[in-house]
Simulated scan of single mutants.
Amino acid sequence: MENRDVLGVAVIGTGKMGADHVRRIQQVTSGARVVAVVDVDRERAELVAGRVDGCTAYTDPVAAMASTDVDAVLIASPGAAHEAALLAAFSRDLPVLCEKPLTPDAASALRVLEAERRLGRRRVQVGFMRRYDAEYLKLKSLLDTGQLGRPLMLHNRHRNLASPPWWTSAMHINDSVVHEMDVTRWLLGQEITAVTVLFPRPSGNAPEGLQDPQFVVMETDGGALVDVEINVNCGFGYQVQAEVVCERGTARIGDGQDMVVSTAGRWGGTIAQDFIERFEDAYDREVQAWVDATRRGEVTGPSVWDGYAVAAVCEAGVRAQREGRRVEAELVEKPALYD
């Protein structure tokens, strides 16, 4: 897809995330337009397509990818549908931005990795949007200079306003801490080797039967320790914070103090209420980076290897929850394609 003036994108999945990406590509992103949307719910697909001139609604991803207008694919469907969509895109050599998870488990992620490896070149950017967040980028830049010395510990806090009715204890790992797993690997440049999950007393805000909050401890192959407080029923908003402790100093992000207002004997600011509000700019940068790279005939950003590695660590985390013990993460040898 080199040197395309305007990239024709098919968006697969028109739920909250997919619909937001359709809006983003049409209103924020330069160099791309949405030419197709796909959803098993035809009515919803047609509703979203109807908001975009020249956009066609489909219920079958393969049919959408067969359109001559489609140059690239953005996958925002539920994780269980990702593998089939990715393999279909590979068969047509279409570049893909795939929202996390790459796939729901390590075995299917490994199948995708092997399929891309057989192509002999990368076609997928995985949607770990925190890598495009301004604060995380500053933290990564600082760590890469080495001026603080080696990272020894990474503390994370991940809090949601309230969990939806269908939320499960395992989703703390697979749908929330998955982000800390990726940024740990990215910030520190190290693989996660083991996971332990501890449970404090459940919050009174949590639905009955849900283990919330949870405290996750991860070990890396570079000797760092990483902890995550995951609290999906904090009751006050959406909050993501990180602090790296290094040999010669520390660095912290996520305090949310871009503007502090003092008035009527009080001072304070606001707290985002969900992940789309908090990471809106990161999503904008992520999609723009994907479009720009695709138009150049390149693939950048988080890779299928990153998606597979995080899936393997998630599996270790869920086992650690279930078995109440430290569980080692098992990864295959990294293929040269991803070096």
Rank of each mutant, 00 (worst) to 15 (best):
L119E: 07
A10L: 05
A80R: 13
L187H: 03
R248V: 00
V216N: 01
R296D: 15
N205E: 11
P95M: 05
S163I: 01
D133H: 15
L225T: 13
C314N: 15
D93S: 14
R44Y: 06
E315T: 06
A109Q: 11
A115C: 01
G54C: 08
L94D: 07
A81W: 10
M171Y: 13
M129Y: 14
R159I: 04
G149C: 05
R4Y: 11
T103I: 11
H21E: 10
Y238L: 08
L154I: 08
V260H: 07
T263H: 09
M65C: 10
V35E: 04
D144H: 14
E243D: 07
L137K: 15
L137P: 00
E43P: 00
T220Q: 09
T103E: 12
V28A: 07
E280K: 08
V28N: 02
I192G: 07
P213I: 01
D105V: 04
G54V: 09
E315L: 04
T184A: 05
G254C: 06
A264M: 08
H172K: 03
Q147A: 15
E180D: 13
V332L: 10
S91P: 00
R266E: 00
L337R: 08
G120S: 04
T270G: 02
E219T: 12
I12M: 06
P164Y: 05
H21P: 09
R130T: 07
W305T: 09
V38I: 04
Q26W: 05
I276P: 00
V216L: 04
L210A: 03
R111Y: 08
T263F: 07
L198F: 07
V124Y: 03
L74P: 05
I192E: 01
A36R: 08
R157M: 11
R252E: 13
S77D: 05
V124A: 08
P165E: 08
V216A: 06
E180I: 10
E135M: 14
T29D: 02
V228I: 13
